[in-house]
């Protein structure tokens, strides 16, 4: 565990906490894409299959449980909570996220470390996570005013994988045979998708104006 990896995990955890705070405090999920949340739940469920078989560390197990439970709780909230579900922008959140699932599955069947259920599911979760933010970014472009918590949520979500890339660079130079080209490429694509968001987030912060993504 190096400092970049820890910073990445804490940033990721913080993004989830910000989203939970937004939904709990405002009892609203306006501006949040349910499709992105469903994709993240699928990412965690397919990535952490080893939760019950491999024990790596208490930290690892606890964080996996936190990510799985929080993503499922958010999906439940947006689908079934009597108050929150009514604030979901159903007609704005129209990204066809099934294509992202299908594409990631095809990629995982083609490119994986070993052709086993667990490795194909793991590769699937890596590819899916890289594109899971797309419905959320499209929704942000459509919803004119992005509230602060939503903007912070997306910002920390994008920042966490950037820390992971630093972690992979660090591990590459400090450990032998540490070559993970699958998360490398997917991580670069994932962080790249946030590039324009980061730019407009920086502008809104610099000019102290509301965050607005151009349509």
């Amino acid at each position: 565990m190096n400092v970049f990896r820890f910073a990445g995990d804490m940033t990721h955890l913080f993004s989830v906490l910000v989203l939970l705070l937004k939904i709990y405090a405002t009892k609203s999920c306006s501006g949040i894409s349910l499709k992105t949340q469903e994709l993240y739940a699928l990412v965690f469920l397919t990535r952490y299959l080893d939760l019950l078989t491999d024990f790596i560390s208490l930290y690892n197990t606890v964080m996996k449980l936190v990510f799985i439970s929080s993503s499922l709780a958010i999906v439940w909230c947006m689908r079934a909570h009597p108050v929150v579900r009514r604030t979901y922008d159903k007609d704005q959140d129209t990204f066809r996220h099934y294509t992202l699932v299908a594409g990631s599955l095809v990629l995982a069947l083609l490119f994986h470390d070993r052709f086993t259920i667990r490795e194909v599911c793991w590769a699937f979760s890596i590819y899916l996570e890289a594109v899971a933010i797309l419905p959320q970014l499209v929704l942000l472009q459509r919803s004119r005013n992005v509230d602060n918590l939503t903007g912070q949520y997306v910002f920390f979500l994008g920042a966490y994988r950037a820390f992971y890339i630093l972690n992979w660079i660090y591990r590459y130079f400090t450990e032998q045979h540490f070559s993970r080209w699958i998360p490398w490429i997917a991580g670069l694509v994932q962080t790249g998708l946030y590039a324009d968001f980061f730019y407009y987030y920086y502008l809104s912060w610099k000019n102290n104006v509301k965050l607005q993504l151009p349509a």
């Binding site: 990896r5 080893d50 790596i56 690892n60 996996k64 992971y164 540490f178």
Partner: peptide, 10 residues
């Protein structure tokens, strides 16, 4: 079964 094989990251 080197450590690198087990996915030790989140």
């Amino acid at each position: 079964f080197s450590k690198g094989e087990v996915h030790d990251e989140l």
